[in-house]
Amino acid sequence: MPQVISSSVTAEPSVDEAALYFDISQADKELVSHLESTSDEMGDILIESFYAHIMGHEEAAQHFRDESHLERVKRGQKRYFADLITAPLDDAYIEDRRRIGQIHERARVSPTLYIGAYSYYLTRLGDHVRQTMKDDPEQAFAIAFALMKLAHFDMALALETFVSAREDTIQAREREISELPTPVLKLQDGLLLIPVVGTLDSFRARALTLQLLEGIREHRARAVVLDITGVAAVDSAVANHLIQSMAAARLMGAQSVLTGLSAEVAQSLVKVGVTGEALNTAGDLQSGIVLATKLMHG
């Protein structure tokens, strides 16, 4: 199973923070542990009734159309709620909650379903406490509040993990996009066009260089037009890389023309000490092709 690396952007709650933000103390843990037998006997019933409750909805029914999957989820959920009552609040507990958050993200369990199930469980359990402890409402309240603190901490853990797993997914997608190959197009014999679109980071700039040089070899190109109209910004490292690519292309005997420089790109090129003399540039693709054709024929 691929380990989802939790991002460090969001603060990761620790046991200390549980005590700080959620005001959870050992006393709360002890109060909640009074519910152990109750949660044992009610766990199954509550979970069954919850699923009976939500399966009426098409979305939930769609999500749990696989019987064995539903059984597995129910078992996991029972353990999850049992841990809430009995498991000691330590690093292992937090680690476990975080792992479950990751599973939720992968299984596309929405926060609504997660919090909904939680709320259903808590209110039913609270109801039970209220009814069974009619003679000691003080204690019943104390237990309910302690339970609420733990539950909120639990949800915070799961949602932090959920969010950071989402962020990782988004980052992975972005990386995929940035790794999209840049096409090398043949305009006419010996003349190539490479349109660069998107973000140019160092990784992609390096891949671009290789494609440029391989393209020259493959097509026996004598001139290359590198169009960066679709590039919003380049930093100085990438600007340097572009210059190096064009120098390498020249070593292979191909003249290169850079077209479509945006104002920002032009500025960052100047910042790394590039002037128009060292570089064939043209304002737009059309004049770039004209220039390249001229260079190609000496």
Partner: peptide, 29 residues
């Protein structure tokens, strides 16, 4: 004539660029 892609890239990284010498892809060129 005929500097290979890998050679070209390595030269550029070393700062060697045959600045004032003409280069060509092959003998035809």
């Amino acid at each position: 004539v005929g500097i290979q892609p890998e050679v070209a890239m390595a030269m550029v990284l070393l700062g060697l660029d045959f600045r004032n010498i003409a280069t060509a892809f092959d003998l035809d060129h």
